[in-house]
Design a binder for these strands. Structure first.
Lengths: 343, 343
DNA sequence: ATTAGCACTCGCCTTTCGGGAGTGCTAACA
DNA sequence: TGTTAGCACTCCCGAAAGGCGAGTGCTAAT
């Protein structure tokens, strides 16, 4: 990600072209630049520089007699070097603060609404990967018999996340035994981080119950086997319509391709889960997923008590308002982390 | 919904026009009809009949020199009188049966996948209103302390639906007291249908705890107050992209209007919740929601053990393949009901 | 009552064409 | 040597024009 630096004037022009194109969605020509951003340069000079920038791969032309637009490499340089850090204005900050001030305490709802507010502020589709169990602390397990053959297993984490799972058993287990299983599991597991469950603790447990009767053993073994097979985290999504505001998606086909992705939670999950931690900007074909080869994705992580638990971000055309989106995503990730950590 | 009957030949023509338009999405003219469906009538005769049908409001013309298309009233007559009952072909039935054969036992997943399969078979966006609590049976309540001030309340129904709610309390309640509250509530409520909870039982409970100490009373009162304030049922949705296959949504504006609706769970909930029970077909402006004034909606209910608990259906342009969709929706609602009831 | 014939309408597709924005090149200039 | 004015050229885009075709309503004949 290191760039050989461009000479300052070229940088300036690349920046101006990118800024203007991001705002106007129209290829930008030398004349426009000279007039609009009086840089003390004539259109001809600018043309020369642009020709150079095109040759070295930072700009491109949709067709020969049009202005220039940034190439993927151009955006990359812009994002890494040229883009001006931006801070949210009062209004935006206020909105977010207000939102996190007090809210329904349902984790689910909070997450859904957070994505919604992100979409609102950025005007791009926004997504979030729900919190992983891994860094959470085991709080409670409860077994509820639903019928003769089905038992509902509830697992509660310190964050109030509830995992549920129905398991089928061959022969009925008495209520008393169920209670004892619950009791033992709780005693053993409460307060432990989930990450530590797989290995040692579970083996210990298995040892301990060697002396118990077989129906009891069956119950607990079954349970243990479900503890670590967890469904994938939920993906939250909002603001899809925003994408339609942008001319790059006027052709239905382009939009359809994206929509197909957005409707498949599994693909979204894969996309988000593959992101490296920290604030990430991936542009166009840098993305692994083909459907977003003409899009950029900006994500950040959110944490609970200092432990990274999830990812939140925004999806838009490569011609995206990077500076603004970065500031919003960062601020929201930050706010969400604080909110989740203080409870 | 009663119609003054049309004379048989007019009916025939209305039916043919509607069938053809549903299939082709093009206004259908007299020539086409005469040629394609040899009814033993000349184009001229058909023209006369169509003119009559237009005058009485069953057909309309997009513009003067185009063929005819059904009006809303025309569709209504078609649906109520002319449409031929259809049964699913083997392949479709097989697919559905296979799907309900065995599946992850997670209720959530089942419902989500059911909508998905409905969308796949109909090629329209499909939606479902998640099961109501009302007709379910109370199975278990569990209180889990998350922190000094927050308690997680879990309520489990006989269907394995888990309602969760975090409630904040002013002063800590001892674990022992929490357990006692759980115990009392479970003893009192287990086996009761939710519908009966609001009134008498809760009052009884309040009476019973008059003698307890105040922290205990506080806990239980708080709890009772949350029991009947339930969040709205979840809305499941799949297959939005399907809508783009249809020419009536080529103009982005039309699509956007719909998309806005589909992204707002609350509006969807309202839309689905307002449906009267049974198999319902509502056409165009018969729908209360403005965004679907050029759409039709077909819904049916699904049940658990004979109790209606939810709604499942399909949304499409008024030019919708009613006969096919009706058969699919009915069959899936039926299958889902059986599936949910047998466990 | 039905139908053949005919004149007429009108959306839609294709083609044409001019304007405008932008370019690269060349030559002059500081 | 870098900058700039001038100019010829390219090519997209939108408007206008025109022809085709599908369909209609009406009239007159069967």
């Amino acid at each position: 990600m290191s760039h050989r630096p461009l000479d300052p004037r070229k940088e300036l022009i690349l920046k101006v072209v990118t800024d203007d194109y991001i705002e106007s969605a129209e290829p930008v020509g030398s004349r426009t630049i000279a007039r609009k951003y009086n840089l003390g340069l004539s259109p001809a000079t600018i043309r020369n520089e642009m020709a150079d920038l095109e040759e070295s791969g930072y700009l491109k032309q949709p067709h020969v007699s049009a202005g220039r637009i940034p190439s993927q490499q151009g955006y990359r340089y812009y994002v890494d070097v040229l883009m001006q850090q931006q801070t949210l204005n009062e209004e935006e900050q206020g909105l977010i603060r207000l939102y996190f001030e007090d809210r329904s305490r349902q984790l689910d709802t909070i997450l859904q609404q957070t994505v919604k507010i992100l979409a609102q502020l950025t005007r791009y589709p926004s997504l979030m990967l729900g919190p992983t169990l891994q860094p959470s602390i085991f709080k409670h397990v409860q077994l509820v018999p639903l019928s003769a053959t089905d038992i509902l297993v509830l697992i509660v984490t310190d964050m109030g996340i509830v995992e549920k799972k129905v398991i089928a058993i061959d022969c009925p287990i008495s209520q008393a035994n169920l209670d004892r299983v619950s009791y033992i599991l709780n005693k053993k597991l409460r307060g432990r981080p989930f990450a530590s469950l797989k290995s040692s603790v579970l083996n210990e447990l298995k040892e301990e119950i060697k002396t118990e009767d077989s129906s009891f053993q069956q119950a607990i073994t079954l349970l243990l086997s479900t503890l670590d097979t967890r469904e994938r985290e939920r993906v939250y999504l909002d603001g899809i319509i925003n994408i339609l505001e942008h001319p790059e998606f006027k052709e239905l086909e382009k939009f359809k391709l994206l929509m197909e992705l957005l409707e498949e939670e599994e693909r979204l999950h894969r996309l988000l889960a593959s992101r490296r931690p920290g604030l990430r900007i991936s542009i166009g074909e840098e993305n692994p997923e083909e459907a977003v080869h003409e899009c950029s994705i900006i994500t950040a992580n959110y944490e609970i008590g200092g432990r990274v638990v999830g990812t939140i971000g925004v999806l838009g055309p490569t011609r995206m308002d990077y500076a603004h989106v970065v500031s919003v995503v960062e601020f929201i990730a930050q706010s969400l982390s604080e909110f989740l950590s203080k409870s």
